[in-house]
Amino acid sequence: MSRGAKRVYAGMRRPVAHPDARVTPLTMDVTDSAQIQEAVEKVESVDILINNAGLALYDDLTDPGPLEQQTRRQSLLAQYGVTRAFLPLLTRARGAIVNVGSVTAFASLPLIPAYSISKAAVFSLSQSLRALLADGA
């Protein structure tokens, strides 16, 4: 906002008020496609989509649960789902997508292996989207 943004839509699972009137809280759990769609319908225009939601589960890969939660629900499919939903608005604005990830995309941190795997996946997602959306979109 210090750079002159006219409006910031802040997606949150439990919306809280913000002292700056330019901030519009939006109820949006990024793992819930119905909530994502409801949020999109409340937004007039978007120049920059920032996929920042994340989760870091400590695990040791003995159980598939954390891996599934990290890659399917929290990182990979969440970034994909939100991006897909906002794509018409972003296309209209010839906007930018910012996928927040981690250096663990390149170097796994064995303390959080499922997280590291999910970050490698979202980095790959960014690369493909960049190529697919580069021309004219």
Binding site: Y58, T91, A96, N99, G101, S102, L111, S126, Q127, L133
Partner: peptide, 19 residues
């Protein structure tokens, strides 16, 4: 449209509070 990938190191948020 542009797509930017952020490759961050540890950031001081709730996510990394135990580290």
């Amino acid at each position: 449209m542009t797509v930017h990938a952020v490759l961050a190191g540890p950031v001081d948020t709730e996510m990394s509070r135990d580290l």
